[in-house]
Amino acid sequence: MPSFVIVEKCDGCKALDKTACQYICPNDLMVLNAESKKAVNQEPEQCWECYNCVKICPQQAIEVRHYADIMPLGSSTIPLRGTDNIMWTIKFRNQKTIKRFKFPIRTTAEGSIDCFKGFTLSSDFADLKKPGFYTGKARTE
């Protein structure tokens, strides 16, 4: 479904230089309404429902009302993304069936990747035209 913004919860990310949802949307859909200071999904029929705006919103002000041409109303799928795991709560249209799942999302601390640490980088540029990466050789059979 296209993401929607709950007016009462959205504070327009006033503490930030741009709104979090506007920063992250891969399809440039989220905009800040200059008058209301609330975020808006400007092109709902181009929304991939990737949930990146939902996951990043510091106010949990964004949810999804699923594609109107496909899905009946009444269900909800809400993520809560932490630093190393994500928790999903899925409520069915019947309001009775509720599923809750928790999955890991990364095994290292955020921001800790140092992709050259521990590797000796080659300055023999003849190697550029040979197989292999700086992290290891290409496989041979």
């Binding site: 479904m1 429902e49 949930y51 699923h66 899905m71 269900s75 999903w88 799942f101 999955f103």
Partner: peptide, 25 residues
Amino acid sequence: EAEAWEDFLDMSISAACLWASFNME
């Protein structure tokens, strides 16, 4: 069961939402 749902939730969340919106397990 969790694995089946995660398969959707990790890469095409709408497919999980579709199950929920049609009350499909």
